[in-house]
Amino acid sequence: MADWTGPLTVGVEEEFHVVDLRTKYLSTRSGPLLEALPQSRFSKELQRSTVEANSEPFARLEDLAKDLCELRDMVIQTGQELGLGIVAAGTVPLADKSSMKISDDPRYERMLDDYQLLTREQLICGTQVHVQVEDKDLATAVAHSVTPWLPPLLALSCSSPFWFGEDTGYASYRTLVWQRWPTSGPMAKYESAADYERMIDNLIQAGTITDPGMIYFDVRPSAHVPTVELRVCDSCPRVDDIVLIAGLFRALVTRELAAVRRDPHREMQLEPVRAATWQATRSGLEGDLVDPVEGVPRAAAEVFMNLVDGLRPELEETGDWELISNLARDALARGSSAARQRRAFEREGRLSDVVDLLLEETRACTWTGPSSYRPAA
C-alpha cells in the first residue's frame, strides 16, 4: 500500500465551448466573456470559442465538486447576460469553420503559422486533472506508469460524437483530432526528470514544438505546477463524472507512486495502450474496452468496475470509496454523453437539440456531498 501521509491534492482545469444561444453555433465571443470574469480563475485558450476554468487544489473531492459548480455557475450566468451559452463537451456539433478565430496572442499566432489546419480545427475541449506530486523524478515515472489504466477514464468522458454537423461514428472524436499533434499519445519511459526535459529541449531545438507547454501526452508532469496532469479526457457535461475521474486518477497516481518506488525501472508497453485508447475512443461506455491486465476485449462496465475495485485500498485510505463506487455505478447506468447526444439527435433529427442537451447538462450542477448523495435519474 502507498506510503503517503495524507491525501494528495487534486485540481481540475475545465475547458468550455462558448455558443450563441440563438443559433446554437460556436461563438468567437470569448473575449467579452473573459473580460467580465475573474482572471485568477478563468483564462483564454487557443480558440476564441473556448474559455478555461481553473479550480483550486483540494484534498477532499467534495470541496473540488463544490468549487467546480461555483465556477460553472459564474461563467454560465455571465455568459447569459451576453447571449452566450456554455457547453462542457469534447465538441459542439454546430460550428462554422470559416468564422472561427484564434485568440489574440503571439504564441497562438505562431502555432497557427506552424501547424495550419491543426490549429484552425482545434475546436475541442478537454478536462485536465492535476494530482500533487512534488518530486519531478517521481512525477515523470508515474506519468508513464499510469498509462495502461487511462483508456477506461477516457471512455467515461466520451462526449464528442459529432464534428461539423456529422456523426463521426466515434464516441470521442476529440481524441482523434488531438492525436494529430506531434507530441500526443501515451508517455514513454524516461529515467529521470532531467532525461524527460532533455527530450523536450531536443524537440524545441528541432523546431517541432516551441515550448514545454506543447507536450500533449495523455498524461504528463505539468509544465507549470508540481503535479502529474491527466489530459486524455473529453470535457464532461456532468460534474459527477469529473469528480469520478479525479478521484480515480488520484488513486491511480497514489498506487503507482508506491509501485515506482519499489521498482523505478518498470516500463509499460505503449502499443497496447494506443490500441486500447483507440477502442475507448470508438466505443465509449457502450461497447467493449480492452482489459488493461489481460489485453482482451471485455464489456466496458466490467473493465471500469474492475478498475474501481482494484483501487479500493487507495480510495478507502482517502475516505472516497463510498462516493466513488456510487458515482461509478451511476455513470455506467447513465451511459456516456456521446450516447445521450445521439439519442437526442435521433428523436427529431436536429443538431440544435444536441446543443440544448449539452447546455442543460452543463448548467445542471448541484453538489450536496456524499452523505446526501443520490444517483442522478
Rank of each mutant, 00 (worst) to 15 (best):
R298V: 01
D3W: 12
M268Y: 04
A194Q: 15
D218M: 05
I324P: 07
A141C: 08
Y373W: 10
G31R: 13
A259G: 06
A88Y: 05
W321A: 03
S372N: 11
T23L: 10
A89C: 03
A328S: 01
N54C: 12
L203F: 07
G335C: 02
Y190V: 09
S49W: 02
L46R: 01
P226F: 00
S98F: 15
M1Q: 13
D105I: 01
S103E: 11
M305C: 03
L154H: 00
T9S: 13
A194L: 15
R350P: 02
E45A: 07
L138Y: 07
G185R: 10
G287T: 02
T91H: 14
G6L: 14
T210W: 12
S43K: 12
V18H: 03
G349Y: 11
R262A: 08
A36C: 06
D113S: 14
S160Q: 08
G213L: 14
L285C: 09
C125G: 06
M1A: 15
H17L: 03
A377W: 13
L61F: 13
E14L: 12
D241G: 10
R48D: 01
N54Y: 10
S157K: 09
L307D: 04
I215E: 13
S103I: 10
L230D: 06
I124Q: 12
L154D: 02
A223L: 05
L37M: 03
V303L: 07
L64M: 05
D96W: 09
P106L: 08
G6A: 14
E62M: 07
R343I: 15
S172L: 05
D3N: 15
V18N: 01
T147A: 08
H265Y: 12
L230Y: 08
A251P: 01
Y173K: 06
R107E: 06
A143K: 01
E302A: 15
D96F: 09
A376D: 11
Y115G: 08
V296N: 07
A2M: 13
G90F: 07
S99I: 14
R343M: 14
Q205L: 15
M305I: 09
S30C: 11
V92T: 13
E271G: 13
M1F: 15
S49K: 13
V355E: 10
A193M: 03
L153Q: 06
P370E: 07
S27D: 00
L34A: 07
K24I: 06
